[in-house]
C-alpha cells in the first residue's frame, strides 16, 4: 500500500510518498493561484511514478487542504508538522515552522503534539516577510541570506511588512550597503520568531521545519537568538507532507 501526504502551503505544495512505512519520495511544486489545479498536478506526478490511485491513501494538509479532491482525510498543518518532525528526529522536540503565511511553534512529546502557538494574523515573522523584502532588494531568498551573513550594524524597527518595506526602501535610498540591509531583514524575522518561541514556553531541542531549513545562516542566527541549538534537516521542508503521509498510514 502507498501513502501520500500532500501539503498545499501558501507558496509551495509539498508531497511525501510512503510505500508502507518507508518514505520513498518527496517533491515540491509551486502552489500557484489554484490549489485544485496544483493538487491535480501532484496526483498526475504520483500516478506517473507507476502508483495506482486505488492503492493509495492520501492525507491533505496546509491551508489548501480542502482543495485536494482525492484526499481521504484532511488534517491541519500544525498536527502534520509536529508528526513530521517527530518522524524526522525520533525524539521530543519543539518544532519551529516558518511558513509562507504563518509561523508556528509546536511542542512534541512522545510523538504527540501537546501544545502549539501560531503568529497573529500578520505577516511579520513569516516567510512572506522575507520574500517581500528579498523582492525589494532585487534578490532571491537564498542570496538574501548569503548577503546577510556578511552584513551587520543596522536594524529595521517596523513590525508591519508594509512599513518595513518602506523602511528598507529608505535604507536603500540612504545608500546603506545591501549586506547590511539584508542583515537587518533577517534579524527582524528571527527576532519575531524567537519572541513567539519565548511566548510559547521554555523550549527544548528546537527543530526548524519549512522552506528555510536549508539556509544555514537562518538556522545559526535563530540558535544564537534562542541561546539554544536549533536542529534541522534538508528533508524538514517536507515535514508537513511527511507528517500527513505518516497519518495516512492510520486510515483504515
Amino acid at each position: 500500500m502507498y501513502y501520500a501526504g500532500v501539503d498545499i502551503g501558501s507558496t509551495a505544495a509539498k508531497t511525501a510518498l510512503f510505500e508502507n512505512d518507508k518514505l520513498i519520495d518527496a517533491f515540491v511544486v509551486p502552489t500557484g493561484w489554484s490549489s485544485i489545479e496544483t493538487a491535480n498536478t501532484i496526483k498526475e506526478k504520483i500516478i506517473s511514478k507507476g502508483i495506482k490511485e486505488e492503492e493509495m491513501k492520501v492525507v491533505a494538509t496546509g491551508y489548501g487542504r480542502v482543495s485536494v479532491p482525492y484526499a481521504h482525510k484532511t488534517i491541519t498543518e500544525i498536527t502534520c508538522h509536529g508528526k513530521g518532525a517527530a518522524y524526522l528526529t525520533g525524539e521530543d522536540c519543539t518544532v519551529i515552522d516558518i511558513g509562507g503565511q504563518d509561523t508556528k511553534v509546536i511542542t512534541v512529546e512522545n510523538g504527540m503534539i501537546v501544545d502549539f502557538l501560531m503568529n497573529d494574523k500578520c505577516s511579520a515573522g513569516t516567510g512572506r516577510f522575507l520574500e517581500i523584502m528579498a523582492n525589494t532588494l532585487g534578490v532571491d531568498i537564498d542570496t538574501l541570506c548569503d548577503l546577510a551573513e556578511t552584513g551587520g550594524d543596522i536594524s529595521i524597527s517596523s513590525m508591519c511588512t508594509v512599513f518595513a518595506e518602506s523602511e528598507v526602501i529608505s535604507l536603500i535610498g540612504r545608500g546603506e550597503k545591501k549586506e547590511d540591509i539584508a542583515y537587518a531583514i533577517v534579524d527582524s524575522i528571527i527576532s519575531k520568531v524567537a519572541s513567539l518561541c519565548n511566548k510559547h514556553s521554555e523550549g527544548t531541542n528546537y527543530y526548524l521545519t519549512g522552506g528555510l531549513c536549508e539556509c544555514d545562516y537562518i538556522v545559526r542566527s535563530l540558535s544564537e537568538k534562542l541561546k539554544s541549538p536549533v536542529k534541522t534537516n534538508p528533508m524538514a521542508r517536507y515535514a508537513g507532507a511527511i507528517g500527513a503521509g505518516v497519518l495516512a498510514q492510520k486510515i483504515k
Binding site: I75, I78, T79, M112, I113, K121
Partner: peptide, 17 residues
Amino acid sequence: QADEGQLKTRVAAFIEM
C-alpha cells in the same frame, strides 16, 4: 470574519491534539 480561516486551523489543530 477576517481571521476565520486561521481560526479554523488553530481550533482544528487544538482538537486534533
